[in-house]
Amino acid sequence: MEKPRKGTQTGTFVTYEDSFKIAVAREYLEGKLSQAQLGRKYGLSSGEVVRYFVNWYKKYISQAEVWESGSPLASNADQGLQEELRLAKLKITALEMMINIAEKELDIDIRKKSGTKPPVK
């Protein structure tokens, strides 16, 4: 997977897309690779970037998941639903990444832009 970028390295900070940060953070949290290994895998400048992604993920994404579930201590019946929700979010992330790659490789806009006008007949 190529690292998506929204900026340039000359004079400004490189900004990564949220879907890329989520994917890298989740891969790290699964525990299969270290921060340094993930940094090398995705061509990041260092493992510190992966650490930033994980902290960002824990702060914003995980917090939103707790709010959606209503309470951090959910019953066993809710755990199945939470697992389905987690898998659905993972699928959404994968689809967003696929759209981003397709837009980049095919050089077309797939997503509808807000405020578009209907064609004049």
Results as ranks from 00 to 15, higher is better:
1 M>P: 05
2 E>P: 08
2 E>C: 05
3 K>P: 08
3 K>M: 14
3 K>Q: 13
5 R>D: 05
5 R>H: 03
6 K>S: 04
7 G>I: 09
7 G>N: 15
9 Q>A: 11
11 G>Y: 10
14 V>C: 03
16 Y>G: 00
20 F>G: 00
21 K>V: 10
21 K>S: 05
22 I>W: 02
24 V>D: 01
26 R>S: 10
27 E>H: 02
28 Y>M: 03
29 L>H: 01
29 L>A: 08
30 E>D: 11
31 G>P: 08
34 S>R: 13
34 S>F: 06
35 Q>D: 01
35 Q>L: 15
35 Q>N: 04
35 Q>C: 13
36 A>Q: 04
36 A>H: 09
37 Q>K: 01
39 G>L: 01
42 Y>L: 03
43 G>V: 04
44 L>H: 06
46 S>E: 00
48 E>Q: 10
50 V>Y: 03
51 R>Y: 04
53 F>D: 01
53 F>S: 02
57 Y>F: 04
58 K>A: 09
59 K>L: 13
61 I>M: 06
61 I>C: 07
62 S>K: 11
64 A>V: 01
66 V>Y: 03
66 V>E: 10
66 V>F: 02
68 E>T: 03
68 E>F: 00
68 E>H: 11
70 G>D: 06
70 G>F: 06
71 S>N: 07
71 S>M: 02
71 S>V: 01
72 P>V: 10
72 P>Y: 09
73 L>Q: 13
73 L>M: 12
76 N>H: 13
76 N>Q: 14
76 N>L: 11
79 Q>E: 11
80 G>Q: 07
80 G>N: 09
81 L>T: 12
83 E>R: 08
83 E>H: 08
84 E>Y: 14
84 E>M: 12
86 R>T: 10
86 R>F: 08
90 L>A: 15
90 L>T: 13
90 L>S: 15
91 K>Q: 12
94 A>G: 10
94 A>I: 02
95 L>R: 14
97 M>N: 15
98 M>S: 14
99 I>Y: 03
99 I>D: 08
100 N>Q: 15
101 I>T: 15
102 A>P: 04
102 A>E: 13
103 E>A: 07
103 E>Q: 14
104 K>Y: 04
105 E>R: 14
107 D>M: 06
107 D>K: 15
109 D>K: 15
109 D>C: 05
110 I>C: 03
111 R>W: 15
112 K>T: 10
112 K>N: 14
113 K>H: 09
113 K>Y: 06
114 S>K: 12
115 G>P: 02
116 T>Y: 11
118 P>Y: 10
118 P>Q: 12
120 V>A: 11
120 V>W: 06
121 K>A: 06
